[in-house]
């Protein structure tokens, strides 16, 4: 058996901190996902139907972000940009910006695949009934693409939520930071990390369930 005496009172005493941290993490993940979707959609269109230079630019963005560890990007945005005089963002904003750019690169790939998988007949049918190009996008391509990519979007949201743990490195008081703080202050290592793990697990699972319900409702088009 484990030779350790648990003392959970430390957790109850800091419970409001843990809750605030959880909400902050969820908030940062959702914001980043929304911003990431906008960026991703723009980049996916740029890559599939933009002029050559824009395609190249979109490709470079996706590859640079996807092939750099997120922690480095976080450090870069928080620690390095200010050295060049760019310091209008505080630590939370700077992290959300980084996570949005990161999410954007992944969503770009998701949407690119989504756009590519739309049956050609749908677009041709839309043309046949006289829809203009933007109408075809608005009423045919986008709705279908969102339904196709919904499972991938929910996957990304869960990933992003867990990625918010990296914000601890720049002193953002999210769940990992809070657990470490409680550790440092009370030496209650097991209790703090078990609580953080349980909260991550529960929140991620709740997101998964909610999005599963959404998928069941909308992703049935095929």
């Amino acid at each position: 058996m484990l030779n350790y005496n648990f003392n959970w009172s430390v957790i109850w005493r800091n419970w409001d901190k843990f809750l605030d941290a959880l909400l902050l993490g969820l908030g940062m993940a959702v914001l980043s996902l929304l911003a990431g979707c906008v960026i991703g959609l723009a980049v996916a269109y740029a890559r599939t139907s933009g002029p050559k230079w824009l395609q190249w630019l979109a490709w470079a963005y996706v590859e640079i972000i996807r092939n750099t560890p997120l922690l480095l990007l976080v450090f870069m945005c928080y620690f390095v940009l200010p050295e060049f005089g760019i310091r209008f963002l505080d630590k939370i904003e700077s992290f959300v910006l980084t996570l949005s750019l990161y999410a954007g690169a992944y969503m770009a790939e998701v949407f690119r695949a989504g756009l590519a998988s739309i049956p050609r007949q749908y677009v041709e049918a839309a043309k046949a009934i006289g829809m203009r190009p933007w109408q075809r996008q608005r009423w045919v391509v986008l709705p279908v693409m969102f339904r196709i990519t919904l499972p991938a979007i929910s996957n990304n949201l869960i990933s992003l939520f867990k990625d918010t743990s990296l914000a601890a490195a720049i002193a953002v008081p999210e769940l990992t930071f809070t657990a470490r703080q409680v550790n440092a202050n009370t030496f209650r290592v097991m209790e703090a990390w078990l609580t953080a793990s349980a909260l991550y697990l529960l929140a991620s699972y709740a997101i998964a369930l909610a999005l599963r319900a959404l998928e069941r409702r909308y992703a049935s088009i095929r």
């Binding site: 928080y78 620690f79 390095v80 200010p82 310091r87 630590k91 601890a168 002193a171 470490r180 440092a184």
Partner: peptide, 18 residues
């Protein structure tokens, strides 16, 4: 007080005027 994991990160926060 912003607490960092390593002394160099704490110093860089000052360098970056965070």
């Amino acid at each position: 007080v912003d607490q960092f994991e390593s002394p160099d990160a704490a110093l860089q926060a000052l360098n970056a005027r965070r």
